[in-house]
Design a protein around this nucleic acid. Structure first.
Lengths: 197, 197
DNA sequence: TTTATTTCTTACCATACATCAATGCTGTGC
DNA sequence: GCACAGCATTGATGTATGGTAAGAAATAAA
């Protein structure tokens, strides 16, 4: 069965033709998993990226004291991968896990290389995605350097209003770099502020 | 005059042949600037990346209260650029400035596109650089989420022992996300710790 | 050299956020 | 329905880092 979103992504955004897609699709594998399923563990070596056909994934680390820190959320039509493992053949530095029941397309390193050889449009789109990812991460670094918890939370709401409803609060806290307790207090403050105005 | 380091980079790492390089080099422009020179200001639109032939550059933001936050250091043989501006035609979100007297190669967006068309090796190397940049930024995000100031500083020393000597401490503090005063205290603590052992 | 400017350090106090522990809430399985 | 688990909230208290201000040290300028 061909994953629709991934097909659309490759054809509409990546500029592949239908026949090019058919040629590639044979090597594709998609996987249905339920909430909580772990795709990748820290320390493992991993040779695949993941395209989220449906559902929601996250990548995160666990520090010395056992606390989780969320690096990325990946809802529908997003990629998530461990570049250390895939492109540099090193053991993974974080975990990848399903937050919701999800359908995920497993993508070998080779797949992207072949697709890039087939289509210059695909290549360019892919490079654009990489630049965008860097840009996004730089913005996040900047926020972590410069903005207090409340501002980071407000920014998160603006950027990902949909995730706000799909993700438990303690994960959002983890993404923002604060404790669930602190996020709860930030929300309380915001509520009373808005009420007073 | 042809910038040596950039030439070596394109030929040895990027896999360009000498003739390919010569063909491209005509459009190259390199610039000698002195410490403090600003290449790019927040809000400007910018159409060039910068390759540091010699010297040291930094990119940074300035927040509402006037404080600077360093996003990246770029010593010799590093690229530094504003992707929002170059690849998405948006006004720059940060400043780029010389920390030392530097020689910098100015690179148009077109240059990279043409080089990529010339050489598959270059294309792959370049993509590899992008993946590495993402990996690096993810590690930094993870540190900002999980590690206290002291650990971040120790990590910085390991990663960039050379920068430690070339960059004023307040800039390192800014890169780490703490005040210069705090960094000074962290260093004092480390000194007394090591003495006691 | 002398002076001026920037950077670094130190002390005291303030603040943001963390930690710990208790309580209530919400959903899920039996 | 009840019991249980995971999550969110709240209060009391602790800790890491920030802010301010002053002086020392280093660096650049004259």
């Amino acid at each position: 069965m061909i994953p629709e979103n991934f097909k659309n992504y490759l054809i509409n955004k990546g500029g592949l033709t239908l026949s090019e897609f058919d040629h590639l699709a044979s090597s594709l594998q998609s996987k249905k998993v339920s909430k909580g399923h772990t795709f990748l563990r820290e320390g493992e070596v991993c040779q695949q990226s993941f395209f989220v056909e449906q559902g929601l994934l996250r990548s995160f680390t666990i520090d010395d004291s056992g606390k989780e820190h969320i690096i990325q959320f990946a809802p529908e039509n997003w990629f998530i991968s461990e570049r250390s493992s895939i492109f540099f053949n090193e053991p993974a530095e974080f975990f990848i896990e399903a937050i919701e029941d999800s359908t995920v397309v497993l993508i070998d390193k080779d797949f992207m290389i072949i697709a890039a050889e087939l289509s210059a449009v695909f290549r360019e789109y892919n490079e654009r995605l990489l630049h965008n990812h860097i840009r996004h991460l730089q913005k996040r670094v900047n926020q972590l350097l410069s903005a207090p918890a409340e501002k980071r939370y407000l920014n998160f709401i603006n950027l990902y209003p949909d995730l706000l409803l799909r993700v438990p609060q303690w994960m959002i806290a983890s993404y923002l770099g604060i404790t669930p307790e602190s996020l709860s207090r930030v929300r309380k403050d915001l509520a009373t502020k808005n009420f007073k105005q």
